Simulated scan of single mutants.
Amino acid sequence: MRVGIIGHEGLSDLTEMLVRGELWQLVTTFGAYDLVGVGRLAPGPESWFAQAVLDHGGRIEAIVPASAARAGTFADAAGNRPGHRLLDRATAVHRLAPVEVGGPGDDTCRALVGMIDELIAVWDGRPGTEPARVVEAAQRAGLFVQVVWPDGCESPA
């Protein structure tokens, strides 16, 4: 099973705790030895999910966007670089060529949706956000989308 992840970055400590717990539970339901987590490994939900997949014996694949701005998302606000540690553990790294299709991140969205069987979206439901665009693309492609936004989560600023 190939499961993609997208999510808001810059979440509060409370939201992190709630989301990490739900992602951990979700990973246990997939039968981790057959699970391949696919995503950018960006700080926040994407790296939390990747680590949970690895902790349960699954594998991860990384999507590295072409744009320099997105490729720099491997460090969080505190300067920690969990994405680089995870990138070293990825069984495949998909480096995207620049594509001028839509807005920023369109190449990543199309690549992610094209590589997965299901999508997990850590998303507060607000339209116009990156998770919203990826969810819409996944639904258009006929993929099952699991939205993770536990009660008590705080939307990012």
Rank of each mutant, 00 (worst) to 15 (best):
P104G: 13
D124L: 07
A111D: 08
L54C: 02
Q139H: 07
H84Q: 13
A69S: 14
P45S: 13
G37S: 04
P45A: 15
R126S: 04
H56P: 00
F30G: 08
Q51M: 13
A132I: 00
Q51I: 07
R133M: 12
A52G: 04
A75H: 06
V135P: 09
P65H: 11
R40H: 03
V134E: 00
A132Q: 03
A138C: 04
T73M: 11
I60C: 00
A50M: 08
I120D: 02
D76Q: 06
L86F: 10
A42S: 12
R70V: 08
V135E: 03
L119N: 02
R85C: 11
A42E: 01
V36K: 06
D76Y: 03
A71P: 03
P45G: 15
V64L: 01
P82F: 05
G114K: 02
A77W: 12
F74N: 03
Q139L: 15
G125M: 08
V53Q: 00
R140L: 14
T108M: 09
L86P: 04
G57Y: 02
R70E: 05
A42D: 04
I63M: 00
T15L: 08
D55W: 03
R85W: 11
T73E: 13
A62C: 13
E16G: 15
P82V: 13
A68D: 08
G44W: 14
P65Q: 09
G31E: 12
P127M: 09
A77Y: 09
I63V: 14
L14D: 09
T28Q: 15
E118T: 07
L26F: 10
M115S: 09
A71W: 03
V27N: 08
W24K: 14
R133S: 13
E130L: 13
E46L: 09
P98I: 04
L86N: 05
V113L: 01
A42M: 03
T15E: 05
E130W: 15
T108Q: 09
P127E: 15
Q51W: 14
I120N: 10
L18T: 10
Y33D: 10
I60V: 15
P98C: 03
E130S: 13
G37Q: 07
Q139I: 13
W123P: 00
Q51P: 12
R40K: 05
A52P: 04
A97I: 06
A137G: 06
V134N: 01
A71D: 03
P45N: 10
A75F: 09
D107M: 05
A77I: 13
Q25R: 15
S12R: 03
L18K: 14
W48T: 07
Q139M: 14
R95L: 02
Y33K: 06
D117P: 04
G31L: 11
G128V: 02
P82E: 13
S47K: 10
A92W: 05
G21E: 04
L96D: 00
L26S: 06
L41Y: 06
L35D: 01
G114I: 05
D107A: 15
A92F: 07
A52K: 11
S47V: 11
A132V: 02
G31T: 01
F49H: 06
G44A: 06
W24G: 10
T129F: 04
S67W: 01
W24F: 11
P127N: 08
G72W: 01
A75G: 02
G102D: 14
I63A: 01
L112W: 00
C109K: 12
E100Y: 08
I60Q: 00
V64C: 00
V134F: 00
E61S: 12
W123N: 01
S67H: 12
G72Q: 05
A32V: 07
E16Y: 10
